[in-house]
């Protein structure tokens, strides 16, 4: 029930993001071109959700934002899951000093206030290493990279705990007794059996990444305009609370739906 509801929410958002160019063509509007004669237009057949402070169609920007936010969420979860599973497996398999060092590192990162650190990380100048700022693709890469710095921790802890219990099972001992190499034991026996907890951690990582991206974009440190992201659509909503309060509603609802969708999926997987 929860799993289905979550997948439905995410599916709708993903479908909207994929359909963005066709919706734009059908409405005959450009989500990036300002139209200053048409600012804050109310909802109408041409602009189903009205227009923003530069006269751009809100619905089209929401759909563009879905592409960016979901791409950031999924890419971060992919990177964090790969890295986290590898680290968790390594810690559980090697044990001893490696385990202690990796898990103390994870504890340390978990205790840190992530957002202030992310704010400092996001403000670093990537231009000096050849990633220009302000271009959508490099902005997305930059955000995914800095979110992965924190994202692996949750995955690694869950993967380690699950791998520890699997490594103590009889079938692992049996596989070793049959002469299976360690690589085979890890790949064929441990990895498939920790997929459940890792999937839950991955779903939660998507939720966290979408929230963090929107927060950084809201603060002006994430995806830079004119590219649309749900966070940066809200960036000037605060200045407009007196003149156009309705501008703030839709992007926030979109973030809420995406994050709640991921949380529901994680909850559903857990049961």
């Amino acid at each position: 029930m929860r799993l289905r509801l979550g997948l439905l929410l995410l599916g709708l958002l993903a479908a909207g993001g994929i359909a963005a160019p066709w919706v734009a063509a059908w409405l005959g509007q450009d989500p990036f071109a300002p139209d200053l004669f048409n600012r804050f237009a109310p909802a109408s057949p041409a602009n189903p959700l009205g227009t923003d402070d530069l006269g751009r169609d809100v619905l089209l920007r929401l759909l563009q934002g879905a592409r960016v936010s979901l791409a950031v969420g999924l890419a971060t979860a992919l990177a964090a899951t790969l890295l986290g599973t590898a680290i968790g497996l390594l810690a559980a398999w090697r044990g001893g000093l490696v385990d202690a060092l990796l898990m103390r590192l994870a504890d340390g990162m978990l205790a840190l206030p992530a957002l202030p650190v992310l704010v400092v990380l996001a403000a670093a100048d990537t231009g000096r290493i050849g990633l220009p700022r302000g271009e959508p693709t490099s902005d997305i890469l930059r955000i995914v990279a800095i979110l992965s710095v924190f994202g692996w921790v949750g995955v690694a802890r869950l993967a380690r705990a699950a791998a520890l219990s699997v490594l103590a099972r009889d079938y692992v001992r049996a596989a070793r007794a049959l002469g299976a190499g360690e690589a085979r034991v890890l790949a064929r026996h441990v990895l498939p059996n920790i997929a459940g907890p890792v999937a839950i951690a991955a779903a939660l990582t998507v939720a966290g990444a979408i929230l963090a991206e929107s927060t950084l974009s809201f603060l002006g440190l994430g995806i830079a305009p004119p590219a649309a992201s749900w966070g940066n659509m809200l960036a000037n909503a605060q200045d407009l609370v007196f003149s156009a309060p309705w501008v703030a509603v839709w992007p926030g609802l979109a973030i809420l739906a995406a994050v709640a969708g991921c949380t529901l999926v994680a909850d559903g997987l857990r049961r």
Binding site: L211, T215, Q238, V259, T263
Partner: peptide, 29 residues
């Protein structure tokens, strides 16, 4: 709980400002 966890807090803040500071005028923005 799920809604509170999923709503971005900056958006919640903006909504609270709109309701209690702008519309009702009870509290400073």
């Amino acid at each position: 709980a799920i809604l509170g966890q999923s709503a971005p807090s900056f958006w919640l803040g903006i909504l609270l400002i709109i309701v209690f500071a702008v519309t009702l005028g009870w509290l400073p923005a």
